[in-house]
């Protein structure tokens, strides 16, 4: 025993055991179970039988699922791109020597701090067909003659929930990128300035390459969060109107829990995994490439 406890390899394994067990119990098992359920026709309260790819075959032909997939991709793409652009811009602004710098940095975090369910409720009111403050303002200003039906028109509804997601997601991107910006040594900028670099060139050839690793991590997370968003949709539209804002996550919940088709819901959730993996792989193997980081091309 004594000998064993002095064995580096054994000790290493021993110390990793708690983490391993945690991962196994809380990550691997649920993921495995979810994947397995996706291949069964399990209903709530009734064990299912193995049905192979039946769920996936059905989902592929199911218009609502296809729509949800499209919505999710659209939602994720548009929201992530805008969150990145605005977040980066905000980070660059906050990185300057502004008056009340700390105050602004704190304020920027607010949307991230407010519980999502609450901010979603606020957006639900902001977009309300009868009580929307936006419509009210525009109406009073005489710019519109009837209230905007933010959540009643499919495309308007999609854009509205995307706007809500962007509002909530910007702080995360901005603050993380700000942290990244602060690690860039000012001497690099001085050197660039001495060489006569324009502000754009300084951004393009100093800031951006050095920020890329952080961008890769931040955007991976941002994409993951957006792709799996649930709360905003569930509170604001429940996936309506006409399923125009249903995301994979909300549809999965609707089918599995409210609808009782655990197997089918699990299949929808599992179908999200390849997309998430692709996002992660893209960031790992793409954005972190040295050549890219150094401003070069393939």
């Amino acid at each position: 025993m004594h000998k064993l406890l002095n064995n580096r390899h054994f000790l290493g394994l021993l110390f990793m055991l708690p983490a391993g067990v945690l991962l196994l119990v809380f990550l691997t098992y649920p993921l495995g179970l979810g994947t397995w359920l996706g291949f069964t026709d399990t209903k709530v309260g009734r064990a299912g039988i193995w049905v192979g790819l039946d769920n996936y075959k059905f989902l592929w032909g199911d218009e609502v699922t296809r729509l949800a997939l499209f919505n999710t991709l659209f939602y994720t793409f548009v929201a992530s791109v805008i969150k990145f652009a605005l977040g980066l811009w905000l980070a660059l602004l906050l990185n300057r020597n502004l008056p009340f710098k700390s105050f602004f940095r704190a304020v920027v975090l607010l949307p991230f701090i407010v519980p999502t369910a609450l901010s979603a409720l606020a957006f639900w009111w902001i977009y309300d067909a009868q009580f929307s403050v936006i419509s009210w303002t525009l109406f009073k200003l005489g710019l519109i003659d009837r209230y905007i039906d933010f959540l009643g028109e499919p495309w308007l509804a999609r854009l509205s929930v995307i706007a809500a997601n962007i509002w909530r997601g910007i702080p995360f991107v901005a603050i993380c990128l700000l942290a990244g910006l602060q690690t860039i040594s000012p001497s690099l900028y001085e050197a660039a300035a001495l060489d006569g670099a324009t502000p754009w060139q300084r951004f393009r050839f100093v800031t951006l390459p050095l920020l890329t690793p952080i961008i890769a991590v931040v955007m991976t997370f941002s994409v993951l969060f957006t792709f799996t968003d649930f709360q905003l949709i569930y509170v604001i539209t429940r996936g309506g109107p006409l399923n125009a804002t249903h995301l994979m996550a909300t549809l999965s919940f609707q089918r599995a829990i409210s609808g009782g088709s655990l197997g089918e819901g699990a299949a929808i959730a599992t179908a999200m995994v390849p997309f998430l993996l692709a996002a992660i792989l893209f960031s790992y193997f793409g954005l972190q490439r040295r050549k890219w980081q150094q401003g070069g091309r393939d």
């Binding site: 067909a129 009837r146 209230y147 039906d149 959540l151 009643g152 539209t237 309506g240 109107p241």
Partner: peptide
């Protein structure tokens, strides 16, 4: 119908009714 019912969830009609809309 009043415009906007496509987006209505359970509480909307109560709110709109009590508001006299």
């Amino acid at each position: 119908f009043v415009p906007g019912t496509l987006s209505w969830l359970d509480p909307n009609n109560n709110k709109a009714f009590l508001d006299g809309q």
